[in-house]
Amino acid sequence: MAPTVLVVDDALFMRMMIKDILTKDGLVVVGEAENGLEAVEKYAELKPDLVTMDIVMPEMDGIEAVRKIIKANPDAKILMCSAMGQQPLVVEALEAGAKDFIVKPFQPAKVIEAARKALRDEG
C-alpha cells in the first residue's frame, strides 16, 4: 500500500507542486488543506501516513496545527515546509513534534528524501 499524504499549504500552486513531486515518487496524496484548522480536521478524518505542513497560513498556522495533531496522534509524521529565514519557526515546529522540514524553493529530491525518511522514522 502506497503511503498516504495530506498536503497543507494556503497556496494552491504550492499544493500542486508538492503533490506532483510526491505523486511521482509513488506516494498518494489523499487530501489537501488550506490552513491549520483544516489540516487538523483532515488529519483526524484521513489519518494519512505523512503530512506536509506549511508554516505561515491563515486561520491557524502550521506550528499550532502540528501541536494539535501531535497531541491527538503522537505518532503523526509531519514535514514542515519552510521558507528561507524561518529557522526559529521551524525549530518551534520541530519541538512541537514535526519530524523534518523541507525548504522552499523545493527541490524534488530533497522533498522525497525527507518524506521517505520521515515515513521510515521510528520516532
Binding site: 500500500m1 503511503p3 498516504t4 498518494v28 489523499v30 487530501g31 478524518e45 484521513l46 489519518k47 494519512p48 501516513d49 505518532d75 515515513l119 521510515r120 521510528e122 520516532g123
Partner: peptide, 12 residues
Amino acid sequence: PEKATEKAPISV
C-alpha cells in the same frame, strides 16, 4: 526501537 510503522491504510 524498531517500532513497526503503524499504518492505517485508508484509501480515500
